[in-house]
């Protein structure tokens, strides 16, 4: 690309000036990780405009993408400047991915900024990449930032749970309420959406969810999230209920602001990011030790029975820590 030749500061400057191509480039830097990403973090931290982060999750086929498209259109109509991060799994075998969520987001969302993110195999990758991407979008003036994930798999659920407002989408007639419960989606929901509400089973699903929410009152979950999650009925195809959903999201934001909870959620996100960064560094560090002569010696000793695995782990950690000081 033309901007390959530019250095990071130039790209940051262009991105801050609103150039979408530069924003796209910075997102790649953040996603890739490594030294350049670290420099980017340093350049952008503190420039945060503190955008509202909205997580939207639900099972495949629940019409999430169309819903997200509609939601961004509603947000844009109310004067906001939304962006979307659409997260999809990479193939564990090849590392490749087919990212197709934006087709439906584009068609209903108009000129919204959408970035598709593959989970990429590496450990904790998303836990660094997504906060990095949020930082880029936040600093370059997007608000709200909507993160769409498939509500299956712990990583995806965790990502959605990181948001200020987490929206869980379910579909009538598919046993979604039960599935959502099993997947742990009930615990993370600030707002429920019953999409395809024109289907006859929509009311039954709403009642299922209400019953589960009655239970969450008992378990104390409701107190933890700060309120009982409202249930919004939508039809993403026609757009019915989208304005109401947008209003619920805004209301939730106000509620969080009023109770200082938004800062708390941001702090939790930052903490999770730091944890992931630390874990990543330790991972790389120990991998380097394994490849060193000390690591090979420890493994040989382990194989011959001279030391046990716990002792080997201590040696690796000591070596790694020592190399930090050097």
């Amino acid at each position: 690309m033309t901007q390959r030749g530019l250095d990071l500061d130039d790209i940051v400057e262009r991105a801050l000036g609103g150039q979408r191509r530069a924003v796209g480039r910075l997102l790649s830097v953040a996603e890739r990780g490594g030294a350049e990403a670290d420099r980017l973090t340093a350049a952008l931290h503190g420039r945060s405009a503190r955008a509202h982060i909205v997580g939207i999750t639900g099972p495949p086929g629940s019409g999430k993408s169309t819903l997200v498209g509609r939601l961004t259109a509603a947000a844009a109509a109310s004067g906001a400047n939304p962006a979307v991060l659409a997260v999809d799994p990479s193939s564990p075998l090849t590392g490749g991915a087919i990212l197709g969520d934006r087709i439906r987001i584009d068609r209903t969302g108009g000129d919204v900024f959408v970035r598709s993110i593959a989970t990429r195999g590496h450990a904790g990758g998303l836990a660094v990449a997504v906060p990095g991407a949020i930082r880029v979008l936040d600093a370059t003036g997007f608000d709200p930032i909507i993160i769409e994930t498939v509500g299956v798999g712990q990583v995806e659920v965790d990502i959605a749970a990181m948001a200020d407002t987490t929206v869980v989408v379910a579909n009538p007639g598919t046993g979604d309420a039960v599935q959502a419960n099993k997947a742990g989606l009930l615990e993370i929901a600030d707002i429920f959406v019953v999409n395809k509400a024109d289907l006859p089973e929509a009311e039954a699903l709403r009642l299922d969810l209400e019953r589960m929410l009655d239970l969450s009152h008992v378990t104390g979950h409701e107190a933890y999230r700060g309120r009982r999650a409202p249930i919004v009925l939508t039809e993403s195809l026609s757009g019915t209920g989208i304005d109401e959903l947008w209003t619920e999201i805004i209301d939730h934001r106000s509620l969080l602001d009023a109770s200082n909870a938004r800062q708390l959620r941001q702090l939790l996100r930052l903490r999770a990011e730091v944890e992931a960064l630390v874990a990543g560094r330790i991972h790389r560090l120990t991998r380097a030790v394994f490849d060193s002569s000390a690591g090979e010696r420890a493994l040989a000793d382990l194989a011959s029975g001279r030391i046990d695995p716990v002792a080997a782990a201590e040696i690796i950690l000591d070596e790694g820590t020592a190399s930090l000081g050097s």
């Binding site: 197709g100 087709i103 439906r104 209903t108």
Partner: peptide, 10 residues
């Protein structure tokens, strides 16, 4: 009726 956009399913 709206316009159909197909999901990207593979």
């Amino acid at each position: 009726f709206g316009t159909y956009v197909e999901p990207a399913v593979f």
